[in-house]
Computed example of a mutant assay.
Amino acid sequence: MAFVSFCTCAPAVLVVPESQKWVATRNVNKQTTHDMPSESQTFVSSTKEKEPKNINKKANPTFLVLFKRKFILRRLLALVLAWTSSSFSVYAISYNTDHLGDNRYVSASLAAISEIVGDILLFLISRKIGYRYSYTLLTTFAGALIFTTLFVKNSNAALGLALAICGKILVSASYSLVYVSTADLVPTPVRNQVYGIVTFVSRMSLLSMPFFLYLGEKVYELITYFVMTFMLIAAGLLYLILPETKGEKQPNSLYDAKQQERNRLNTQCKFGGSNENIEVPSLP
């Protein structure tokens, strides 16, 4: 089945046109800018106008910029923890669904529906308060509900199942949020690299998740719930250091990503070097 799907979809790659804006920004072919439509030429000219003269335009961002620029590294670390905590908690609750209620079929059905409810909840609250505060609220309340489930499920199975499902709704919403916000926090030249790093680290953390579940079942049940709660709350608090991206376009360059720092508490931005300081105005 996979082979048939590959043979059917692979030829479509040959007829998909290259993005004109990507070609223009990467300077793949200097002659292509003359043959571009007016929209792409407008994009190129507007990009050149908004970039300051003191930025080194010859240097193309590479993978090493993730570790050379402090503001990019700060965002990368926060996103790694966010992806790890959300994915770990989502799959831990999903694998532990059989132990949440008396009827495993009802528990599994509610756990599946909770992911749809989580996406709807995310859509509603993110439009009101933005991504940054939404993620912090979702993970903080999710950690509190998950930790409370441990002390309730043995005495009242129905209430324990309700708390666990509510926690999974919030965790599912936070997991969907990091997918969207990651693209808004990193510039286009290194966006694929950042997605690769955060997904790799989060998937590697999932390898240890069954062992934590087994450890909680055989040694002490508090361990699993404590790990999920601690990771969720820590990720939610660390996410507050990131700039708010609600209503802003995705950054196409390092300069665009640095401009987002005006949404943080500090207003002094630095690219590095003595001639690359940029003053970013604070919000009114």
Rank of each mutant, 00 (worst) to 15 (best):
D256W: 05
F6D: 13
V180G: 13
M231S: 15
V186W: 08
E244I: 09
F151T: 01
L159F: 13
T149V: 11
S5E: 11
V23F: 10
Y225Q: 02
E276R: 09
K249C: 11
T25R: 13
I169F: 14
S86A: 14
S174D: 13
P251R: 07
K128E: 12
S253F: 12
E115L: 12
A235F: 05
S282F: 03
T8I: 07
T33H: 01
A257L: 05
T62N: 09
T199Q: 14
V16Q: 08
L100Q: 15
I113V: 06
T42G: 05
S114E: 00
E217V: 05
Q250D: 12
L185N: 01
Y179V: 02
P210Y: 05
T245I: 10
G143V: 08
Y91F: 15
K168S: 07
F141T: 02
S38I: 03
K153R: 04
Y220T: 03
T42A: 06
S126G: 01
E248S: 13
S85G: 08
N275T: 04
L238R: 02
D119P: 00
F123G: 11
S202V: 10
R262G: 14
V90Q: 12
K58P: 00
I165Y: 11
V117F: 04
N29K: 04
T8H: 06
V178K: 13
L283Q: 06
A10M: 03
C166I: 03
S94T: 12
A162M: 10
Q250S: 13
T229G: 14
D35M: 10
P11V: 01
L161G: 08
L77A: 14
E18T: 02
P11Q: 04
Q260K: 08
I197D: 02
Y131M: 00
S40P: 01
R74K: 08
S205P: 05
L215K: 03
F151Y: 04
F147K: 00
S176A: 15
A158I: 07
V16E: 11
A92C: 13
S87P: 01
H99G: 06
E217P: 03
F212D: 01
E248Q: 13
A10D: 10
F3M: 11
L222Y: 15
T97K: 06
L254C: 06
E244F: 13
T25Q: 14
S172D: 07
T42Y: 08
A144I: 05
A173V: 09
L145F: 15
A112R: 00
A173Q: 05
L73K: 08
Y239A: 01
F67C: 05
H99D: 01
Y239D: 03
N103A: 04
G160C: 06
T139E: 10
L66V: 00
R203K: 15
L122I: 04
P61N: 01
V201D: 06
S176T: 06
V186I: 11
L232F: 00
R262C: 09
S86L: 07
R264D: 00
E217R: 08
S126C: 11
I93C: 08
E221W: 14
G167L: 06
F226E: 12
R74S: 12
Y135E: 06
A59T: 00
I169E: 13
P251D: 14
